[in-house]
Amino acid sequence: MSALPPYATTGQRIWHYGFRVICGLIFFFLIFPILIIIPLSFNAQDFFTFTPEMLALKAEGYSLKHYEDFFTNSDWQQAMTNSIRIAPVATILSVGFGTLAAIGLSQTHVPFRRAIMAILISPMIVPLIISAAGMYFFYSRIGLQGTYWGVVLAHAALGIPFVIITVTATLVGFDKSLTRAAANLGAGPVRTFFKIQMPLILPGVISGGLFAFITSFDEVVVVLFVGSAGQKTLPWQMFTGLREQISPTILAVATLLVAISVALLTTLELLRRRSERLRGMSPG
């Protein structure tokens, strides 16, 4: 947004400043609820509100006890272990299938590619509760309900649309003559895929993978349906904590999850910049 030109009309001036106010409000409503959690998680009391000591910025108002609880309580530790066992495997499946699907569907000769694409993306669009109920009935029939692999597969299905979308977007900019050049130089299809195509679409694959990971790591609805007590993940434990114990440990966990998400998104942005440099889109 540049400065107002001298010939701007009154309407344009109002809009110019009104636009900034609107942007500010949007940021406030999106970010503030997340930011407010961070100081609250250091509350020395078992309350969800700011205590007078905290507002007075006294040291005794703050403590790490909720973090301590998270790292020592066996329920939370079990939930964390489950999340760490489920999310990466679901991510690997999403990335593998999603990437292959995106490459296949970017070929113009594939019949019904739009319809297939729409079906694969549908978990992102269909209300989660419907997917979850559907998976519950289907997985019960085939004995996957309440199992580790059931949850992994369900999360993989939720992650695939992200991978397909990001990889498809990178493939749009992919120059098909590069694969032809590779073949012309003697490389077979497998070598061409790993040496030429994969390195160039890697940013899309990685960002899709990160989204898939965060989806699985944050997901609560599907795991409630498809999982059993043995697959209680962090979000599930938070949900239970909120309903049953109202323990501020949730705030500590939430802060940790925010930190992880920020770290992942930063990684993503750095990777994107690196790939732009590699592809010569911005000066190296």
Partner: peptide, 17 residues
């Protein structure tokens, strides 16, 4: 990939990475 024919593409098709 088994023909062993060299080719110069119109847009060069150099591998950017």
């Amino acid at each position: 990939h088994k023909r062993g024919i060299g080719m110069v593409f119109q847009n060069y098709a150099l591998f950017p990475h």
